[in-house]
Design a protein around this nucleic acid. Sequence first.
DNA 1: TCTGGGGTCCTAGGACCC
DNA 2: TCTGGGGTCCTAGGACCC
Length: 355
Amino acid sequence: MRIILLIDMDYFFAACEERRKPEIKGKPVIVGFDPKGGTGRGVVSTCNYEARKFGIHSAMPISSAYRLKPDAIFLPIDYKFYEKVSEEVMSLVKTFSSKYEQVSVDEMYLDISDKVNSYDEALLYAKKIKDEINNKLKLPCSVGVSANKLLAKMACEAAKPNGIRLVKPEEAKTFLKNMPVGKLHGVGKVTEEKLKSLGYNTIGDIQKTDPERLALHFRSSGQDIYNSANGVDESEVLEYSEVKSISRERTFDEDTAEKTKIEEKLKEISKEVFEELKEKDFYFKTVTVKIRYSDFTEHLKSRSLLHPTNNLDQIINTAIKLWEQSTEDKRKIRKLGVRVSTLSKRKGQKTIFGP
DNA sequence: TCTGGGGTCCTAGGACCC
DNA sequence: TCTGGGGTCCTAGGACCC
């Protein structure tokens, strides 16, 4: 029997800011793009619970957040700082089990099957971890406890904020039954709509269906949806993951079709990509340019070079060529992105990176 | 509401090689 | 003269997650 934890930091970016600026605690704090007095083009990255009281939430346009609470504390995203705090969290959590998987900057799975003998013990163990994060690092978090990653994740969602939630495997189906299908991890907007149109409104509706019917409409992911709805997930807690790509993208303050502006931006973005490539000591073989037009349609263009390289001019020249090829019309561009992939180390072999 | 940025994984057709 | 099957790489796009 496996016992898995998901530890998820609460409103992480805003919590980091509260920790270093105690005077803002208790006030609505919004971390995201510059609202520019309500005209800014970006979204809310994270906000604390005081801000949520005004209806503000992650991914909301920053201009809307500004309209809802103009005198909230708006802070820019200081990713380097959050990464440092994240390392503090991760190294503390790792002392509780060597079987861990970092999912993102503020989230991590722990397999504690070897550390405890029952769910009661698991709860105590989770509480200990949570208390240490609270006391030593002064950061709030929530923990989900269950038999697999999916259930731990869903339990953690139910625990938020600042809570712990245990879901035993025998309780799983009941726990999930009444939730809307969109709550299921792995089901996004598109799949949610499709599920609803097929008559599946709650996760319980999926539990009762014939998986063959799901396979008919969702191909190979049909079985995954069925398994998730039933709380079944065999995936392992994996410590290592490979870096597959490095990318940067930027949105213009105003949409543009001007050649010089676009080339300038592509150079700028390429340089940022190059800096990280150098830092991580990678070679790349493929360059991809992403273009988002004013109407939000997106196009990708990519080209693979004959040999792996780590040359900045190769990125810039390929990026500009790809853009030129894609732009026979004069549509205005909202956002540009540059990505390098097919990464390798000097000798050409891929390398494993741990968190 | 007027919509960011950094990722991963998957699919699918076509090229190309054996 | 008509026709295989497997494998891998490339390119484009889409869904999803945080």
